[in-house]
Write a protein that binds this DNA or RNA. Structure first.
Lengths: 200, 200
DNA sequence: CATGTTGCGCAACAGATGTTATGCGATGGG
DNA sequence: CCCATCGCATAACATCTGTTGCGCAACATG
């Protein structure tokens, strides 16, 4: 047998190149040659590891989601208040550093791309539902007083929307949404969600 | 002089075709031929009214923004509470009917596209700032009690993010975010923003 | 009716893109 | 030392894309 190459690692490296290309050129600028250039190889190598462009995108998306999930799972479980635990998880959805900025950008493009690909939409649906479920548990644990707050689902959906919108705004105009502002808005939103009682 | 054609109207019709193509194929599927097919004409006509693809996109974007602004300006000014007035304006950013769904989809694509085009980013910045300013005035008028609420800017930013995220989620998966849910979340968010007092 | 101007359909062009096939070097087991 | 097999670079190919130019039909004006 001739030399053996770490198949999985090569695929991950190429996927990383896909992210970089998407981040600076968008999905419309994502071409096999651009990916090859970003990865420092030839298009032949890309096609050698991925049957076609669709498979390339699917793998890049899969690895991205895996990476985000791993980052959240790897959060240090300190002796914090339930509210701090909620904040720590929610914060992971915001582009607060270079790594998460890249993730947020690519994630935004992939999310919009689900509109034109039913298969992607299905995956997105599952992923999104899981995310909502996770935040729901954290919110329930962090809300004070009564065993079940009013309109828990609505509060979670408001938080999710706030996170997505904040990430989107920060992605399209990073200068106007520095990390400080993002954190402030998230803190405020948590205050409102956890303390406010619906009047109507 | 031979027959005269309403230049502006033709351009608007073509821009409408651009929206339809973007809505069902995304920006990557936006080609001159697809636009021509959607408009029921030839590519020659498209290029006759627009110098190049960039001009085509710019005009489509411009008309779209104008249309959204006009819709908000045309809102009936009834004798409502300040809170209802705020809700009426904020609701315009949500894809609650077919027309606004199309707008929200195209708007999402254009917003992401600003990342790769500095000129578009500048326009987006101005438009976004104007939107924040308008909502700020409405929130200030709707907040009860003190003349100036705590962290007014943060509350507005949270509202804006919630609206954007809600629209994005409804755009990517309309089935999971029916108009009822959108309205419920927006009502709740307004309750939280207008009534909640920050503790920290 | 003649005519010049306008509207725009049609087609050709160069460049880019996804995909496929060919071929060569390298490498580790026999 | 040999060579089978894997890794991948190169290039050819058909298709699609934006852009340009040609040319004809329609029509208001003289």
């Amino acid at each position: 047998m001739p030399r053996q190459v770490d198949h999985a690692q090569r695929r991950s490296e190429i996927s990383s190149a896909v992210w970089r290309v998407v981040c600076e050129s968008g999905l419309e600028g994502l071409t096999l040659r651009a990916v090859a250039a970003a990865a420092g190889c030839t298009t032949g190598m890309v096609t050698h590891y991925f049957r076609d462009k669709k498979a390339l995108l699917a793998h890049a998306r899969s690895v991205m989601h895996r990476r985000m999930a791993d980052r959240i799972d790897a959060l240090p479980v300190r002796d914090e208040s339930p509210r701090d635990r909620l904040y720590a998880v929610a914060e992971q959805a915001l582009p607060l550093d270079e790594e998460r900025h890249l993730e947020a950008v690519v994630w935004s493009y992939f999310q919009l791309a689900t509109r034109t690909d039913p298969e992607l939409l299905r995956e997105h649906f599952v992923s999104h539902a899981s995310w909502v479920r996770r935040l729901t548990a954290l919110v329930r644990a962090a809300v004070p007083g009564e065993p079940e707050p009013q309109d828990l689902e609505g509060r979670v959906r408001a938080l999710v929307a706030c996170l997505d919108g904040l990430a989107l705004n920060a992605v399209t105009d990073p200068g106007a949404y520095p990390p400080d502002l993002q954190r402030r808005v998230l803190e405020l939103q948590l205050d409102l969600i956890l303390e406010g009682n619906r009047s109507l």
